[in-house]
Amino acid sequence: MSHTFPSLSSPFTEPAAHASGLTKTYGKGEARVTALDAVSVEFARGRFTAVMGPSGSGKSTLMHCMAGLDPVTSGSARIGRVELSSLNDRQLTELRREKVGFVFQGFNLLPTLTALENIVLPLRLAGRRPEAEWLETIVATVGLAGRLAHRPAQLSGGQQQRVAVARALASRPEIIFADEPTGNLDSRSGAEVLSFLRDSVRELGQTVVMVTHDPLAAAYADRVVFLSDGRLVDELDAPTADAVLERMLAFEAQGRTT
């Protein structure tokens, strides 16, 4: 499959998303919790990046802030060249609609819509007509042909998550955020979904950022960044599951000794 994004064929080397000095705190006074502590990270275009860390490390918060779901306390979060903190709710909504795709742990499909309707929902919200050819491409990629008229309740978990991946791909976003996409799936379905995400990067030139705590899942990525206690602590290119596991264990050991 030779389909590529026009924007990616340009010699533009700016990262798809970028955080610098990103800080997020919740609560006030005594109850104040720092979820992200001056995190700076780049997510390169056309790459599959995994964000890893133990629970409470701030990896989900990082994703929420980068995707424009949660406002940042200080620092900068950008998608392309757009600074998220400069946008109001309406502009943020449009940004998510046009430039961001989501895959959630709980699938989060609309139960009243068929698979196909779910896939084209972001396009319809934007008032755009889905291109038939592109739609066929993604439906074929995630292997849903023949299931398109089904409602989510009639699909298995793996199938639902594949619909969610197709939905994220449909509007050709600049970046897809996947939040523990395999968390609710058995290992076979999980592996399928991860392959689709990787294929979308390799074959369709998509950019994907995935939050996970599973070293096996992280091994599908091109690069892994590690978060601990709200800070970026390490990263790893072309990871293998063993290498990721090793690093994780190292952090935990470190955490215990300090």
Partner: peptide
């Protein structure tokens, strides 16, 4: 949750 998803994938408050 569903309304949250709609908002996340790009429906305006007015929608």
């Amino acid at each position: 949750r569903e309304i949250g998803v709609l908002r996340a994938i790009g429906m305006h408050r007015s929608g």
